[in-house]
């Protein structure tokens, strides 16, 4: 479960990017976080992970977000970054996937079992010993998801998971996201992908909630989307 209770945050420049934000995400829910550039989507993610601290109260993975709970919250929360090169910092996919389980005290054998299981589930066995810098964009994104799944997180946060992917890989990522049973919060401008993967959408505007509701309802509201520098998803505009 994720809960924001009257959370505000300002960067050092003094500009408040999150203002009195409150929302709740139930366990197992898939929620899309949308909004124009600078609306505060990435900041919400960083606040949830304790990479930034603001005012108000945040409950993440059922725990109150403070310095004492931070290691446990981070252990239970996987974050898929927009740029997979930033996420995949070890030389090979295998090393990257082993990184978190080993850091969290698993033995090498246990961690390896988990890595193999995740690779099999995502049909990525062929990439196991590949060098990260040699992977294609789509492979890198899939491998990044695999590294996070190897942590067995309760909640998965994704920042633009389909950015810079070709249509085939985009479809593949959507399929994989739909196959994940965890609580998901997905920040993206790809509204078609949000429609395909999320049952609920939160629309942010200047750090506040402009809309929160069923994905189909929010994403069908042309006037609301246009007022927030967004457009109707292609699949809805055709209907």
């Amino acid at each position: 479960m994720i809960e924001f209770k009257k959370v505000s945050f300002a960067y050092e420049t003094g500009k408040e990017v999150i203002r009195d934000l409150s929302f709740t995400i139930r366990g197992g829910e898939a929620v899309g976080l949308i909004g124009a550039n600078g609306a505060g989507k990435s900041t919400v993610m960083k606040l949830l992970l304790g990479l930034l601290f603001g005012e108000g109260e945040i409950i993440s993975a059922g725990l109150r977000l403070d310095k004492a709970n931070l290691p446990l919250i981070r252990r239970k929360t996987g974050f898929i970054l927009q740029d997979s090169d930033d996420q995949m910092f070890m030389p090979t996919v295998y090393d990257d996937m082993m990184f978190a389980p080993l850091n969290y005290g698993m033995t090498k054998e246990e961690a390896e079992r988990r890595v193999d299981e995740v690779l099999e589930r995502l049909e990525l066995q062929a990439l196991k010993h590949s060098y990260n810098h040699k992977l294609s964009g789509g492979e890198k994104k899939m491998a990044a998801i695999a590294t996070i799944l190897a942590m067995e997180p309760e909640t998965i946060l994704m920042d633009e998971p389909t950015a810079a992917l070709d249509p085939y890989n985009r479809r593949l990522i959507i399929r994989r996201i739909n196959g994940l049973s965890q609580t998901k919060l997905i920040a993206s401008h790809d509204l078609d992908m949000i429609l395909d993967t999320c049952e609920r959408v939160i629309l942010l505007s200047e750090g506040r909630i402009a809309a929160d509701g069923k994905a189909e309802e929010v994403l069908r509201d042309k006037a609301l989307l246009e007022a927030n520098h967004l457009e109707l998803p292609l699949s809805l505009s055709r209907r």
């Binding site: 992970l49 970054l81 930033d86 990184f99 850091n103």
Partner: peptide
């Protein structure tokens, strides 16, 4: 970004090589 990615996966200033 990389440092954040490392912290979020339990990095505690020691790489554990597998």
């Amino acid at each position: 970004e990389i440092y954040a990615a490392m912290l979020l996966r339990g990095y505690d200033r020691e790489f554990r090589y597998a």
